[in-house]
Structures are given as structure tokens and as C-alpha cells.
Design a protein around this nucleic acid. Structure first.
Lengths: 349, 349
DNA sequence: TTGAACCTGTTAATCGATTAACAGGGAGGT
DNA sequence: ACCTCCCTGTTAATCGATTAACAGGTTCAA
């Protein structure tokens, strides 16, 4: 008696078939007005608010939601300008389509046991979604593999054989940065990247095979753009955050030969680098060149040389692929553009 | 044959019961190692990635996800500092609990027909969640009603008879603002609020019954704090955004008698107000007083008098109520504090 | 008068999984 | 020799809904 009301119990109480109740909620017009009203009134009387979401999703095989997973821990996403712009783009498309956004956490933890891994990916398996977006994760990342194994459409941020993707040419963008620095005469460059570690965990001897996929490509591009003979060191201050960039400056400058340029993997990191330089009284562009990535809002006013990419449009395109049935594109390549500003200058003053 | 594999088909292929397959994935140890491995290998062979989320959710009645709905259109949330701080707090609790966050869009549209309404709330009904958070919406808002009718726990941002809530005393905070202004001698005050309209839609003659619940309370508080005889006008520039605050200044100053203070409903709005004053060459605090709400990060450096509230903690507390089984609190009241800075000063210079 | 077409409502199969209850067989204790 | 307990695996009920197919009754035109 005190059970939660269901379609069935409403039908019983109203003296009709379950089909009728279902129609009353989902297809007004399929029933006579009088019966529909009767059913609806019985429903409210019983405190029945409409068909249960789980039951309906199982039956119709439609969840009305798309999932999103990130490189960055979910709790940091809300302070990461890149992630926010991306999500904003996704929402622009999802909201008018009445589609919910499911932000899915995952935690690979330290225990690498198979079961521990499945545990950390519980939310990825559990998420009730019609499709998913994986941003920044490599194709062989466990969370991406888990998502790909579920037979739902998956949009990646790098082109992947025959799969859906929205990407930029990270390697070419890296070449542009490297080429720009090479033209200015830079031969000693430190690259600052984000890694999955918490912010503030400094890694000077970065294992390049463990880099985020996009970082690796940009790095290779920078090396190619700089040409042979250039010295490139990689430093990380943890996740993609202002603080990480700040922390990375000390090991960049103090260890061994001093670089003439620092190339950061994002504008947020570059912002931290610039701040650290200011504290040390080093003039960006004159004494030391700095580059960023993304062309975030503050980059222009900070005079930061960076690679512009249409982040918001990226989110839109990714969502479109999942939501718009008329969308036939499967692999979108977005343009990038090097924007030279005052934070870069000649290596030999 | 080309069907998506299911628990049943895997069981058939492996020559075992469906129960065995289920246990293989969910309860290692319930089966002998040999059988488990056999099942798992058959599963991978068939391309079966594990139990289907929809089916499992229906059976277990657990979704592993909580929903969030906002006052602000979802696509704006990602640029609203308040919303971001709130979401950040929610995530701090949800992520370690491997719980997904479902951002639910809703659209009341213009057509007020019953069916149109149900249509606009489709995502609210459809969302597969274990509980939900409604922030900023009044108890009688259609989206909140729809959510409340689903028999899942709902956390509101205002105390509501016997329901879960995490709130601040908006009225008292308003009184604090009003009292502060009254002490300084202000008798003509313009209150700037956010309304559901898009940014940039100016409303000078605000219908107070249509205000967001929290706005209404703060407004009443401000009136009470100012005491009898004070003149209060309400202006809105649309949704909670910098731009809205900027737009609101013209009608605030130009219409009729000139106020000596502007009280904004959020720091973001206040930021817009300050900018507009700067353009007009009016000195905040000396010629015209300005107050905000929230104590956002930039408020201190901008010298903005505001009401501090622990937004992040609010998100955490809301999430805890839904996720932590050991959480017994049902109605949490968070503290607020008036922070007087340089943007307010005596009315009679 | 005869169908055709439409309106309403029902029957019953199905979506994909979980888990209490049960049962057979060995191990081990007395 | 007998009883109990543990280990593995199965049976079968159930979670809450959707919808193709069908059927009885009207309506209406020819």
C-alpha cells in the first residue's frame, strides 16, 4: 500500500490497462480526453509523477543524456578555463535538445589490479547515457577503453581510426610554436606541461610516454619546429593550473644551462610562468620568451604569444555529433593559428 | 547474431546461467576462479563490456548519479562564478564517491500549455538519478515541483518544510546590507537583481513576485534594514552576469531622483555596476555606494562591500546529504557575514 | 447496404540485468 | 559413520516501462 506508485498500480487503480496509462503521459491524443483526464487524476491522487526514468530508459534504449570525461579531475574542471569553454560549447547544443550532461568521474588510483581498476571506472560503466565525449585522453586510456567498449557513440579529441573525433592538429601547432621560437634564435627551450599529478607536484624528469596525448604531440611538434640541435627539456608542475606554471619556473631556470624560452602547454600554465618571472624581475619577451596555448581571454591583455584554437566550437561540434541526427561529419579538424605577441622576442638581446 | 551482446547471450555462449555471468562481473569470489575466467574470456570474445547500465539501474534502483538544476540557463552556468563554486563543492564530495553529476536543462518556454510545460521539463523527468539539487529555484517552480514529485531526495537552497535544504538566511543578509547603508545615511537605494531573461534585457519595472526566491528575500531584508521611509527601486539587466550589472546603471541613475546607493544581488552584477560607474567617472564609495553579494574572489581587490557566504561549502553540504548515508542533517543553515570595504561610504559627502 | 477509415482501448512480448533461495558435493570434526 | 559447514552454481521472480498488433465500435461516403 505504501509502495511507490508505478504505471501498473496506477492502471489498476484507474481500472485500465498499463498501455493506457503510458499513453496518457506520452501520447496525449492517443486516448480520449475523458479517459486521459481520469488517468491523470488517479495518478496525482496516488502521487505518481510520470513514468520512471530507469524503466523507460531500459525499454526505449534512450537516456536523453550524454557523458563527458576529462583529463582533469572533475573537481578541477570548474576552475579550468579550457574545460569550461569546452563544456559551454557542449551545452549550447545539448540544452536546446533537452539533453542532460553527465559529468563522469573516474579514478585510476594506485592499485593497478584489474579489480581495482574496474572499481575506479565504476561510474564510467554505470553512467546511463546515449553517447560520450572524451576530451584530452589518449585512445588507450582505461577510461576511454571502457567507454569505447560500451556500444555507444564516442567522440574523441584526437582522430582515431574510423571513430568520431573533433581535433586540432596538435603536432602542427607545436611546429608553429617551435618554428616561431627558432626564427627568433632560441635553441634552449623548456616545455611546461600538465600531468595527472595534483597541482604542485613537481616533475622535472618527465616520462614522456606518460604525457597526455595532446601534450606528447605538441612536444614532438615543438622539437620538429625548432629543428635539429636544439635543446628541449620538459618540466611539469602537476595539473593544468596557474600554480603549476608558477612552480615549474624554478627548475626550468635553475637547473643546468639556462633556457631562452619557455613553452607552456596552455595559457593557464603560461600565466603562472609569467607571474613567477615577474616575481623574479625577469622581463618576458626581452630576457626570456614565453608561449602559451589556447588563446584564453586574458592572453591578449597579458601580451602572451599563444596558439589560438576554437575551444567553444570544439565542444559544440562534439555535442552535435552525438545529438544531431542530421550531422554526418565523423572527423572534424579545427583550425589553429599562432598569435605572436610581446611575450616572445629574439633570443640574443 | 549481430545483436549487441547481453548478459543472457554471454551466458548462453559460455554454457552457464545468467546469474553466473552477473557474479563474474559484480562479485568476483562468488565464483571459482576458473569459471570466472572462462566467462570473462567468452565475454570479451563477444565484445561484451559488462552489464548494461540501464538494465542494472532498473534492477538495483541505484543510478550512481545525482542531478543538478539551476536558476541560470545551463549554458550560462559555466561562466557564472557562483554556479562554478557551487558545482566545485558538489564535485568534491561526489567524485570520491564515484558519483556522476547530471546537469539537467529545462526550458519553460513561452507557451504555458500543460503539454508544452511537460515537454520543457522532459529532461527533468528523464534524468536517471538517485537524488537532486535545486539551487536558487523557488519551491513552486515547475522544475522543482517535477523533481519533488519523483520520489527521490531533493536538496533545496531554501528551507522547506521537512525537506532537505542548505541555505543561508537571505532575509537577514538583506537586513545587514540595508542596515549598513542606513547607518551611512542612505535613503534612496536601487537594488539590482538577476532575472531569468537573457542578459541585456533591461527591466526597470520589475514584477517582484516573479523574482528568484533568494532575490525576493534579500530585497525584503534590505527594505527592513533600511527602515521606514527609505525609497527602494528594483532594476534588472537580465541574467546574473557582468553585462547585466553594467546595463542596469543607466536606468538606475537616470530615472527620477538619483539614488545614493546601488545594492546588487551578486558580486558579478556589482562588478558590472562598478565598471559602468568608472566609465561615467563616478567614484564608488564617495559619490555613490555599491554593494554586492557572495564575496567572490575579485571582490577584495575591487574593494567591494559585500555579503560573504560559503558557496563552495554549500555545494559540499548539498552533495553530502544525497551521497553520504551517515549524514543525518536535514536542514543546514550556513553563516553569512557583511564585509564592509571601500565601495560604500556616507551618503552626504 | 457496404465497406473503408478512423477512434479508442487492450493484450502480451520485451528491454537487460540482480539476487534470494536452493541444492549437490566435498571437507573436516567427533 | 554421521553431521555440519562451506563452496559453487542454478532457478526463477522481479525491477518499471513501451509499443506493435489487434479488435470492437462509429462515422460517413458511395
Amino acid at each position: 500500500m505504501s509502495q511507490r506508485p508505478t504505471l501498473k498500480s496506477v492502471a489498476a487503480a484507474a481500472g485500465v490497462s498499463t498501455a493506457a496509462v503510458s499513453y496518457a503521459f506520452n501520447r496525449p491524443g492517443r486516448l480520449s480526453d475523458s479517459l486521459r483526464e481520469h488517468i491523470l487524476s488517479v495518478a496525482t491522487e496516488l502521487g505518481y509523477a510520470g513514468p520512471d526514468a530507469a524503466g523507460r530508459t531500459l525499454r526505449t534504449r534512450r537516456a536523453g543524456a550524454i557523458g563527458v570525461i576529462f583529463t582533469v579531475g572533475l573537481r578541477y574542471a570548474f576552475s579550468d578555463p579550457y574545460a569550461l569553454a569546452m563544456l559551454g560549447g557542449v551545452t549550447e547544443v545539448a540544452e536546446p535538445a533537452r539533453t542532460s550532461l553527465v559529468l563522469i568521474p573516474f579514478d585510476l588510483g594506485d592499485g593497478l589490479g584489474d579489480d581495482g581498476l574496474r572499481e575506479g571506472l565504476a561510474a564510467v560503466h554505470q553512467a546511463v547515457i546515449d553517447g560520450a565525449i572524451a576530451d584530452g585522453l589518449a585512445d588507450d586510456h582505461p577510461a576511454v577503453l571502457a567507454l569505447a567498449a560500451r556500444n555507444i557513440p564516442l567522440v574523441r579529441s584526437q582522430p582515431s581510426a574510423a571513430g568520431l573525433s573533433v581535433s586540432i592538429d596538435d603536432h602542427a601547432a607545436g611546429v608553429a610554436v617551435g618554428g616561431h621560437l627558432a626564427e627568433l634564435g632560441h635553441r634552449e627551450v623548456v616545455v611546461v606541461v600538465a600531468t595527472p599529478q595534483p597541482a604542485g607536484v613537481l616533475v622535472t624528469d618527465v616520462d614522456e610516454s606518460a604525457l597526455y596525448a595532446y601534450s606528447k604531440q605538441r612536444l614532438d611538434g615543438i622539437r620538429a619546429g625548432l629543428g635539429p640541435g636544439a635543446q628541449v627539456r620538459v618540466v611539469s608542475g602537476g595539473r593544468n593550473a596557474h600554480e603549476s606554471g608558477r612552480m615549474a619556473v624554478a627548475p626550468a631556470l635553475d637547473g643546468g644551462r639556462r633556457p631562452t624560452a619557455i613553452a607552456a602547454d596552455s595559457d593557464v600554465l603560461a600565466g603562472g610562468v609569467l607571474e613567477a618571472l615577474r616575481v623574479r624581475g625577469i622581463a618576458p619577451g626581452r630576457e626570456l620568451s614565453v608561449t602559451g596555448f589556447d588563446d584564453a581571454e586574458f592572453a591578449a591583455s597579458a601580451g602572451l604569444t599563444t596558439v589560438r584554437q576554437p575551444v567553444r566550437e570544439r565542444g559544440r561540434a562534439m555535442a552535435r555529433m552525438l545529438i544531431d541526427p542530421g550531422c554526418t561529419e565523423r572527423q572534424v579538424l579545427l583550425p589553429t593559428e599562432l598569435v605572436a605577441r610581446s611575450s616572445t622576442g629574439p633570443a640574443n638581446h
